[in-house]
Design a protein around this nucleic acid. Sequence first.
DNA 1: TGTAGAAAGTTGTTGCCGCAAGCATCCCAG
DNA 2: CTGGGATGCTTGCGGCAACAACTTTCTACA
Lengths: 159, 159
Amino acid sequence: MDPFDDPRLTAMGLLAEVSTGLAAELGKTFSAAGLSEVDFETLIRLARSPQHRLRMSDLAGQTSLSTSGITRVVDRLEREGLVQRSPCSTDRRASYAVLTEEGVNRLTALVPQHLEDIDTWFTSLLTPEQLATFLETLRTIRDVVRPCATAGVERAPTS
Amino acid sequence: MDPFDDPRLTAMGLLAEVSTGLAAELGKTFSAAGLSEVDFETLIRLARSPQHRLRMSDLAGQTSLSTSGITRVVDRLEREGLVQRSPCSTDRRASYAVLTEEGVNRLTALVPQHLEDIDTWFTSLLTPEQLATFLETLRTIRDVVRPCATAGVERAPTS
DNA sequence: TGTAGAAAGTTGTTGCCGCAAGCATCCCAG
DNA sequence: CTGGGATGCTTGCGGCAACAACTTTCTACA
């Protein structure tokens, strides 16, 4: 009867709830460490990149932030000493954001708790088979909605 | 070797990418209709509630927005004539947000395209069995990370 | 070589949201 | 029935991010 009770709406709502709810739980650990989710995302992307560095626009491409957003995130992180700007030798327009040693340390201190959080609120709730199937499905969708998530990576099997 | 290459990080990143990527695609339809995602979320929650209305704080509980956030969302929607505040007869502190006829119309006009979007970017990518399994897994996680998502509903099997 | 257009990054502006404070109302213990 | 604490909502304030405009540098084409 009610046209607003479509199972697709429910499915989409469920996905959104899980994502935001999970992010809210994980965010507690971040803010306890004085970082925002975006900060962490940025730092971890740098940590997983060759030489712990990435050009500003590649960072933007990976994080669904605009380039101006990245400018400000890196501003903040640089002010805290976790990241440093470094000019690109082959293109004077471009800058790298490079993880500093302090940035690595901060991440290293944070990651164990973060992994435990992921276990608690996500992976440990599923059997290994369930988890594998779930990730497979996520990859299927990801490949469609985010075809260029590997900016700045030459073809790394990140997932 | 690199401690930042844990499969759990990858799993979590994948989930986040899918969620934000999907939201970005679906958001195009919303903004074409002059609404934000939050606006749509709010309207659809009202549409799926008895009498097309919900108390402000219940709305907040359902949407992971703070109560002050809800105040402002309803401000905007009311300014556009899609929603109307209505005092609660049994508690003079409380207000209902009620969907107006125009609000219903706007939603009715928007939902078909939205459903098609969900198909395009999500459900049609999976087989029915895959989708069912996926939703089951999402429910498992949802029940843990968001135990009170049914505020204002007396025990409706919303999903 | 010179020039037009594209691209990388930054900055001004605007709007959104959470937090804390405030006001009105409700509830309950005494 | 009365006073204090809890609850529902709104508002002031601060921070964050997108958009657009701008500067500098690169690239391609004549």
